[in-house]
Simulated assay, not measured.
Amino acid sequence: MQNNGIPVVNVPIGPGSQDEGDMVLDYMKMPSEMASYDLPILPEAEIVAECPQALAVLEILQENLDRYRVGDIAQTIPLVALAEHDLDIINQILGEGEVSITIVGPRVIKVQETVLAGVWRIRAFDASGTLIDDAMEIADIPTLVKTHAFSTQRPLVFDAGALPEGVLNAPSVLVEIQEASHRYKEAAAVGQVSDIAHVINLSLLPFSPQDHGFLTEITGTGPVTMLSRGYGNCRITSTQTEGLWRVQYFNSTDQLILDTLEVTDIPLVACAAQEDLDDSAERLKEIREVLV
């Protein structure tokens, strides 16, 4: 009689059972962190009670937040004369939010959004790095951003007949920028700047490194740089072409995922909306109720 049974073969399985040779496990890098709002650790009410100047600043801040509407003139609260202990309390309560701004000029200005959207901490430093001014401002975007963004602007001029080697698509984009910037300038002259930006998506264009370099050289780099942190980062840089901003989005692994140019007054992604300001007013009210 023949044995027609199926032979059983012992095949090793599990970790270490496969001979991968020179193969190396490769996988997409996972997100490492995400910036998000954390409620600041508030000081004890007894400590705050010993800082009347800090309490007075918070009361003024509340009044300004309650009545401020997007488009209004920004409201400023000076802090440079505040006592050190009171200033420490303000720093602890307001903390740091998602948006930071650097303005380079005769003096360096550092702007940091607080945990209350639309409430900005503005510090100015001289050439030696010494603090010379300190204030809070309630606004959708700080006034200094608007006044300094294109303070170094220059005419957008290039010779289409003498392009550097490797430059192919940048000239057509520059022509589009010229036209959009001219329309923006005309509208601004009569106070009719639209909230709708003219957007050029460079990520969708076959742009070479030479194209990017030539575009940056011709449009220039302005004095304002803004960084908005969230799930990934958004870097916004003014140029030396009136109304033109470079807006770049990075994912949480710091890879560039969207590269755009915007012709507009201020890119909306950097601005606090009215809903954000209303929420900030409510949150400050809750914080003050805990502290007082």
Rank of each mutant, 00 (worst) to 15 (best):
L94F: 04
V247K: 03
I177F: 08
D265N: 03
G222S: 02
A188Q: 12
V292S: 02
T239R: 00
V224N: 07
D278N: 15
E137W: 10
N251A: 06
I196N: 13
G105P: 00
E96T: 13
G220P: 01
D140E: 11
D22F: 11
V48M: 12
N201L: 00
I47L: 15
L87G: 04
R121S: 04
F214T: 03
T216R: 04
I200T: 01
E96V: 12
A81E: 12
E282T: 11
Q92E: 05
V157Q: 15
V290N: 09
S151C: 06
S181G: 13
P7L: 04
Q210V: 00
H198N: 08
L284Y: 00
A83M: 10
L284H: 00
G97C: 07
L116M: 08
A197I: 05
D88L: 09
V104L: 14
L55K: 09
I141M: 09
A187Y: 04
I60L: 08
P209M: 00
D276L: 06
N169G: 02
V247I: 08
H212D: 13
G161P: 07
G213H: 09
D22Q: 11
A135F: 01
G14W: 06
D134Q: 06
D265E: 02
S172V: 10
I122C: 04
V157P: 06
D66H: 13
I6K: 00
L291K: 02
T152G: 10
N233I: 00
F158R: 07
T76V: 10
G222E: 03
P142W: 10
Q112R: 09
K185I: 07
E217P: 01
V24L: 11
E262R: 00
E217W: 03
Y249S: 15
A45W: 05
S203P: 10
V224E: 10
V269N: 10
K110G: 13
L277W: 03
I73F: 06
I141D: 06
T253Y: 11
Q248C: 02
G243N: 06
H198W: 02
L205S: 05
L202A: 05
R246P: 01
G71N: 05
T143A: 07
P164N: 08
G243R: 02
L156A: 10
F150N: 10
E46R: 15
Y37E: 08
V269K: 13
I257H: 06
A188F: 12
P15S: 07
A83N: 14
L39F: 14
Q153V: 14
Q62D: 09
I132C: 06
L156C: 11
L168M: 03
E113D: 01
V199T: 08
P142D: 04
D278Y: 06
T239Y: 02
T260S: 01
V48L: 12
